[in-house]
Design a protein around this nucleic acid. Sequence first.
RNA 1: GCGCCCGUAGCUCAAUUGGAUAGAGCAACUGCCUUCUAAGCAGUAGGUUACAGGUUCGAGCCCUGUCGGGCGUACCA
Length: 543
Amino acid sequence: MNEYLKRIITEALRRLYPELEIPEIHLEKPRIAEHGDLATNVAMTLAKPLRMPPRGIAEALVNELKYDESQLESVDLAGPGFINFKFSPNWLYGALGEVFEKGDSYGKGTLLEGKRYQVEFVSANPTGPLTVGHGRNAVLGDTVARLFEWAGASVAREYYFNNAGRQMRVLGNSVSARYQQILGKDVEFPDGGYEGEYIRDIAAKMVEEYGDTYLSDPENVIFKETAEKVIFEDISVTLKRMNIKMDTYFNENDLYENGSIDDVLKRLEEKDLVYKEDGAVWFRTTKFGKEKDTVLVKSTGEPTYRLPDIAYHANKLDRGYDVCVDVFGADHIATYPDVISALSVLGYDKNRVDVLIYQFVTIVQDGKPFKMSTRKANFVTLDELMDEVGSDVTRFFFLMRSPGTHLEFDIAQAKESGEKNPVFYLQYAFARIQSIMRKVQETTEFKGEVDLKLLSHESEIKVIKSLLDFPDWIISAAMSKEPHRLINYLNELATDFHKFYHDCRIMGEDEKLAQARVQLLQAVSLVMKNGLTILGIEAPERM
RNA sequence: GCGCCCGUAGCUCAAUUGGAUAGAGCAACUGCCUUCUAAGCAGUAGGUUACAGGUUCGAGCCCUGUCGGGCGUACCA
């Protein structure tokens, strides 16, 4: 339909103003239903180049426009110069038919067909269980990946981690200290160590397994290695519970072993973008508009995290992905411009790296905000949260707001199983349809072809139109990396359905009409299911 | 100090990326089930989109400044 409208508008313009360079025709869905199904503002944008009033242009255009009346019901001039198009019911019924043809794959687009995407997310180092803070990252990353898939791309999900470095040493020392304490040795807990209960659990397990074997060897790497193994196991179980499956895990350490770190450094040196000072190696980030240069290698010889970050991104791009998406919390916002600068210097197209930055999550418990810190063991883990509210609610809460705004996670509201909880509105709509279907199937058997033309009630038409919007919203949510748009859409669809069902009954109606309505419900059910699938949320048969 | 993000109904948030009359949910009030899920529907009330300018046919959205909040601004990740 979009293409059709663009074509006839362009043709009309060409006839009216042969001299004019015809701009890209912009079509949008008016906010208000009375303004039609699609509208264009070409007349307004042409006002300046043509030096004519927008309404005058619009009027001429409307008069000149030739269209097929079986497709378009009306074309109107409105407001300051909008041209509003209203689809004919005939076109709507035809389009609705296509929904059934596509079925489970209705909504799948071709925009990103043939593209290879990679989404890197979670990427928490194995120092402790995933917390609610990681939750937003995990769920956003996974859902954005699903959206890319529905937009036609092939997508790889990657988890990047570092099991070397200072953090992990502290982790090992923390376990070692607890291990010794359990065995009765009076050792002091390391300053800044991980205080969480899970450290004790790991130590206890080691006592069980090895007895006091390592009591005389508190520096043994086995403490760190065991902790890493146990914690990773724990993390992957948590992810699985949340419906998240990683394709690859990438260890930062590989970048050292395969020489990419040195290689990147050498290539930056060749471009004269690094220099030595005070025993450290610096990256001339001032050349890219930064206030200060950035240290890449400390005077101890150890790289800062920025260098492996650059090498890692180069590595990802070398693996042939068309686009690599990073999912970052707001605290990482400062680091990625350096990575981008370095990559373009190294000859990569910086548009191949895309970053989704989300604002922090505030947990609200008993009406009060709750500050978290992994090291201080002052946190709510994702597992605890899911024990309380389940994974559907957890995913939904992380997705329902724009990534760009701070998210307030109200545990009380999430626990609420009734109308206060917004997930249920969607799931209920689906379950309600299933129930109606079951009932109808018990009592009636429809014969003959479905006649969609019988769906002429205002709220039926509204439902049909909403159903047809689904693919557009997937693209919109995918390209903006904002899954909440899909949720907003599904909410509207659910509202349209409930309204329809309030206005229109099925049983007791004329059989052909009932049949058409059942068909319509099937379409709603299908879209609802596909939508919830993208969100990674279950569509329950009954509630 | 400087940089990035945010500021919309009492509360939590939308607003299809510059479009027409700024919308939902919760909280408050009023109606609607003897029959297919009322976890629903319909309605009332609630706004100078933090503030002041600017850009243009048109601004919650873009630009400048001010105020308020978050995050950065490490030879931490």
